[in-house]
Write a protein that binds this DNA or RNA. Structure first.
Lengths: 264, 264
DNA sequence: AACCAATGGTTCGAATAATGAACCGTATCC
DNA sequence: GGATACGGTTCATTATTCGAACCATTGGTT
């Protein structure tokens, strides 16, 4: 791994539970020497990618990332378009809709939209990391990713979040086959209890998934009729988001859900 | 300059007029060898900071910057808070309000808010670079920055955007003294003809400016009464934004505009 | 108040990784 | 069909990064 990659990978240790990280923590987390980590952080700081809080202590992300994100939005208006698509999706289904994007080996929450139809709804946070095996979004991405890539994602130890989380790789591979056949993934209480989620992949420039779009509802509201509406709307929304962000919608993408029930 | 800084500085060549840049362009712009630029771009690509469009051509910013920006917002909710403050500011003044942040040696537009009160209004774009000497925001930042820093910003050749642009360093230094005394900067048609802008600095963790907040109006609407309202609202908004983003408001910041007129 | 364990930051010889001139293969344009 | 520009690749040379050990401070414990 080159020096630049090592330095940039330090930024990967920031997440929503860890918005500031100290020098020693960086060294421990990355396995790099403290001096090495320090030199890299200094360069990142010079360029505005990180900054130190108050009296020279822990590092947090710097203002430069805001500028870059604004420019990314200018060339690929993913966030803007996603917000629009999600708004329509949550209105049409009456449930919480959300979109996520792949970043390296992780799937990150990008944006979400609530519906005002019901008093109870599934709540979301942006910038969260979604586990591939335990979310509908993750399964949607894996199902349409190159085999070696999705196998790698299933390779490590798979965390159990609820009693319903599927952690058996054999069973997960079977689920993915079902998703490839129907075009829509599902996860019932895989990450959070009492949540039934559906998702479809969003494709990028090379017919390869760049993320997913999903609808999350309380299990109690998931009737067969509601399921049909969600799947149909989701399919449309995923295609819409793909095309409007410069992606290619695969010609062989399954057009409608086959008869067979594919619940997890 | 270290390897990491060189690689990151490549990202600096993206701007709103140049959202995609080719390998040879990077080499030319940066002065780096083509092979060097290529290797750095490959590493940036691996980490998701850039990606290649379609059939392997020019580079554009990648999805990773979106994740980082979301996390930056989580630790320093500048954008969220700025949007709120700007909304109130544009409502209170009836004019376009906008906020900018310092990034390295540049001042970048961050967010803006229009008022619906008038049919004519000053239009804005985000992610734009604001010249220090020709904007009220730039002057507000320079006036309260360390002397060596603001002198450096006035050092290079100062572009003339309109016949009214002030480019004489001596005259600019005198303007900055006025801003320090009043706390509010002004620029009449300095960047765009027919625009009268007021601005105040936003401070960060070390009582040092991190950006500015401004109100831009057509010159025809700038009556003495309107000027008083804008200055008062601006002062309040700048203080609000500073405190709500973890900054320190200087105890010696001038509390109200002195009698003397300080028009450019 | 002496001690200990962590912290952020610094040094310098050894080892590794970055460098750049030259070179491909391809596409585009007179 | 020749010239030019493009993205990408190679490999010997060399400059840069690496890391063990070392400071100076801080905060907690006895």
């Amino acid at each position: 791994m080159g020096t630049v990659s090592k330095a940039l990978s330090l930024l990967g240790y920031f997440d929503q539970t860890r918005t500031a990280v100290g020098l020693s923590d960086f060294a421990r987390l990355s396995g790099l020497n403290k001096a090495t980590a320090y030199r890299m952080l200094s360069e990142l700081q010079e360029q505005g990618f990180v900054e130190q809080t108050g009296a020279g202590r822990a590092y947090r992300l710097g203002p430069e990332v805001l500028r870059l994100a604004a420019l990314r939005e200018l060339s690929v208006p993913m966030l803007t378009v996603a917000r629009e698509v999600l708004h329509r999706l949550s209105e049409a289904t009456g449930e919480t809709a959300h979109a996520s994007v792949i970043r390296g080996r992780q799937l990150n929450q990008l944006a979400h939209s609530y519906s005002a139809r019901h008093a109870t709804r599934v709540m979301m946070d942006d910038a969260e990391v979604l586990p591939f095996h335990a979310t509908a979004s993750g399964l949607a991405v894996l199902a349409f990713s190159p085999a070696d890539w999705s196998e790698a994602a299933l390779g490590g130890a798979l965390a159990r979040f609820t009693p319903q989380t599927v952690t058996d790789p054999v069973r997960l591979r079977s689920l993915l086959r079902g998703v490839r056949a129907s075009g829509i993934s599902e996860s019932v209480s895989g990450l959070e209890a009492d949540v039934h989620a559906h998702a479809a992949p969003v494709f990028g420039a090379g017919e390869v998934p760049v993320g997913a779009i999903a609808v999350a509802a309380p299990v109690s509201r998931m009737t067969p009729a509601q399921k049909r509406i969600i799947e149909s709307e989701l399919r449309q929304a995923a295609r819409d988001l793909t095309l409007r962000t410069g992606g290619f919608w695969p010609a062989d993408y399954p057009a409608s859900t086959p008869e067979k029930e594919l619940t997890q």
